[in-house]
Nucleic acid binder design. Sequence first.
DNA 1: TTCATTTTTTATCATTTGTAAAATAAATTG
DNA 2: CAATTTATTTTACAAATGATAAAAAATGAA
Lengths: 187, 187
Amino acid sequence: MEFSTIIDAIHQLPEQSKLKLIRSVQEVTFPKGYSLLKAGTVETRIYFIKKGIVRAYASTPDNEITFWFGKEGQAIISMRSYVEELPGYEDIELLEACELYELKTEQLQHLFEEDIHIANWGRKFAEQELIKTEERLIQRQFRTASERYKELLLNHPDLIQRIQLGHIASYLGITQVSLSRIRAELK
Amino acid sequence: MEFSTIIDAIHQLPEQSKLKLIRSVQEVTFPKGYSLLKAGTVETRIYFIKKGIVRAYASTPDNEITFWFGKEGQAIISMRSYVEELPGYEDIELLEACELYELKTEQLQHLFEEDIHIANWGRKFAEQELIKTEERLIQRQFRTASERYKELLLNHPDLIQRIQLGHIASYLGITQVSLSRIRAELK
DNA sequence: TTCATTTTTTATCATTTGTAAAATAAATTG
DNA sequence: CAATTTATTTTACAAATGATAAAAAATGAA
């Protein structure tokens, strides 16, 4: 997926501003399983996914929770590093070999201060992510685990194909055993 | 709480830009129990809380989920109206008599297009809300209902005092009966 | 205050989900 | 290909939470 397409999907930008963004990114590739961002560090880069699929997860000593999947067109950001310049709470792991567009946070922040269109583009991005996250929080309470799985199956069948079920279960807020039970009932 | 203080808490703004915002708001008051925003409608205003406390909830025919509390200093926004100009999914109810600063969305959008500092201020606001929501989503999975209650008690003791437990339970993702059980264990 | 209403707690039982361990299945490696 | 590792499903049992009903307590209005 072209970077230009990714930009436009977030929010329409004037050609001049788009060019500034395009000139700021650099293509990089990483192998499957690569650990792109690590919790506890202040990340200085963000990425956009040209090709591949990744997961963000948070860990405690005895648990690990996948709370986000990213695929073609989406932005990979350690939110707390990006927003507050503090160590992030998430690890990001590549679930497939990935082609990414890399962008230095500092450079983006500079564009935010300099170009009002890019500032509003960045605002739109955060707002759209906010809505998605808020809706997930609400749906988690309204719907049973089984309903949430069926919905994922309906709306993102590709994720079920491309991602192992342990991660899907974690994303849905249940254990792998529970997900297995749910899948058995649907047969 | 002064509107100027609320603005600064989100992100520092130059005096000029701050004045533009201040000139755009209007103080309003509503009684306890007032339904400020309604789900299914496109809201054209946002509010900042000078005094009082409110809750945002989403409803299905047989259920109602409180997913957000707002108190002094916070913004009341129907997210989907604000971001996508589509009907919102939340109702907002005043849990106390409130003094609010009212701002027309259209006017704010206009300031976003015109003043880069305000655009970045709006970006910061969305980003901060995004982090809070994402952290709640993660915590809901890491911690038991009991731990989540203790944490709320620790970090927001005022909410427990000012809000009835049915709403707190819903916010924590459990039933009121469950919350009552948890409270009984802590005695 | 007293009465009516709302909120919170308590008790019981049903259901869901989690934990642990074993059995299968699938993928990877030499 | 066989051997090994990794992922998924199945089973049995335990723990947490939900649903419902009813009692107790708190709140608010007259």
